[in-house]
Each structure stands twice: as C-alpha cells, then as structure tokens.
Amino acid sequence: MLILHCPYCGVDADETELSPGGEAHLKRFGPGSSDEDFQDYLFARENPRGVHFERWRHAAGCGKWFHAARSTDTLEVFGTYSAQTTEPPKEICDRISGKRPGWTWRLFG
C-alpha cells in the first residue's frame, strides 16, 4: 500500500484516500504554440523506471493537490511537497541524490 504524507493537512494517507494526477511540473502550451510543443504538452510523458515527480490529490481527505517524489522501480517515496511551486524543493532533491546519485528527470537533477 502506497502511503503519502499530505503536506497540507499532515495526514499520512493511504492510496485509497488519494487520487493520482499524473506527471508534475508540466509547462503549459496553449493557442499560438507550435504543433510539436502542443503535442508534447498534451501527450508526451516522462515514463522513467526510477525517480519520478507526480501530482496527487488528497481526494478523500483535505482535498488539496500536492506533489510527490517517488521511485517507480521500488515504490519508495522520497517526499511530498507543496503544489504551489514549479520545481521540487532542494531538500527533496538532496534526499534523492543521497539515495540515487546521478539521477535526472526532465528539467531537474
């Protein structure tokens, strides 16, 4: 059972309380952008076997969206953080670096 700590209400929530929201930190491309950028924004997704950043919603709890840093090959959770940010906080990146030296993920790493 995946357990994520909700950074808003402080509850350690089971995955049955949570709704997955897909890849985090997408940059939005709208009208006026190129076909390639719009396609990538809508459909291209990071699908790493390893470190991944995702959006989650504490759906059956406080209802807030937040971010999680997780590993898709071990299901280890590196940490959760606020939704009000465009990149993961340094302490979470450092924690990942401690466990997975040399990791990269799209814009970060």
């Binding site: 995955e15 699908n47 995702e54 898709t72 299901l75």
Partner: peptide, 13 residues
C-alpha cells in the same frame, strides 16, 4: 492502478 509503476506488483484495493 492509476500511477506509474515498474514493479509488476499492483495495489491490493
């Protein structure tokens, strides 16, 4: 399951 996973294990619920 609704989230990315490579472990060949799924959620019990």
């Amino acid at each position: 399951d609704g989230y990315n996973n490579y472990t060949q294990r799924g959620s019990f619920h």
